[in-house]
Simulated scan of single mutants.
Amino acid sequence: MAMLVLALLPLLATSASAAGGCAAEASLSSPNGNAYAACSDLPRLGATVHWTYDGAAGSLSVAFVAAPAAPGGWVAWGLNPFGEGMAGAQALLAAPSSSSGAWAVRTYNISGYALGAPGPIAFPATGLAAELGADGRVRVSGTLSVGQGAAVLNQVWQVGSAVSGDGIPAPHAMGGDNLAAKAKLDLVRQTTSSSDSGGSGLARERNIHGILNAVSWGLLLPMGAIFARYLKTFRSADPAWFYLHVTCQIIGYGVGVAGWATGINLGNASNGVTYGLHRSIGIAAFALATLQVTI
Rank of each mutant, 00 (worst) to 15 (best):
A228W: 15
Q249M: 14
A47S: 12
L202S: 10
P239R: 04
N178K: 01
P68E: 04
P31Y: 04
D41N: 11
L42K: 02
W241F: 08
S216L: 03
G224W: 01
N80M: 12
L266M: 10
Q155R: 14
A23H: 14
A237Q: 12
F286E: 12
S161D: 15
G72E: 05
G201R: 03
V65Y: 04
L92H: 10
Y275W: 08
L132W: 03
A150I: 03
M1S: 11
P171K: 01
S98V: 07
T191R: 13
G101Q: 14
S17K: 09
V75D: 04
C39D: 01
G254N: 09
V215C: 06
S197C: 00
V293D: 08
T52C: 07
A91P: 08
I295K: 03
A76D: 06
S27P: 04
A16Y: 08
P171G: 02
V293N: 04
P171R: 00
L277D: 15
K182F: 12
R279M: 07
Y275M: 12
L153P: 01
V140G: 02
G160V: 02
A2M: 09
Q148I: 11
A7W: 07
A285F: 14
A225F: 08
D54L: 03
A122V: 11
A16M: 08
A19L: 09
A183W: 03
A35C: 03
S280I: 00
G33S: 07
V146Y: 08
R189H: 09
A94S: 12
V156N: 14
L45S: 09
A183V: 05
A181C: 11
P118V: 02
V188M: 13
G256Y: 01
A70K: 14
T274G: 06
L291S: 06
N109G: 10
L115S: 01
G165R: 02
L179K: 07
Q148D: 14
A181P: 04
W241M: 02
L11P: 02
M86T: 05
A18N: 07
G176I: 07
V5M: 11
V188H: 08
A69V: 06
T262Y: 06
D54I: 00
L202P: 05
W217H: 07
S164W: 09
D186T: 06
H278E: 14
P68F: 03
V49I: 04
A258N: 10
G160Q: 01
A37I: 00
G101W: 14
R137Y: 05
A269T: 08
G88E: 03
A151Y: 07
G256N: 08
G55N: 09
V5W: 13
D54Q: 09
G73N: 07
H278P: 13
S17W: 11
S30D: 12
G85P: 02
I208W: 14
A70C: 11
G147E: 11
T52K: 02
L179H: 15
L79N: 02
A91V: 06
L231R: 11
Y108C: 05
D166Y: 07
N213E: 01
S195T: 06
N207V: 00
G46M: 01
A225D: 15
Q292C: 05
A130W: 00
G175S: 10
S270M: 10
A214Q: 13
S15Q: 12
E84Y: 13
C248H: 05
W260G: 03
W241L: 06
L144M: 11
N265H: 12
Q158W: 10
H209R: 08
R229E: 15
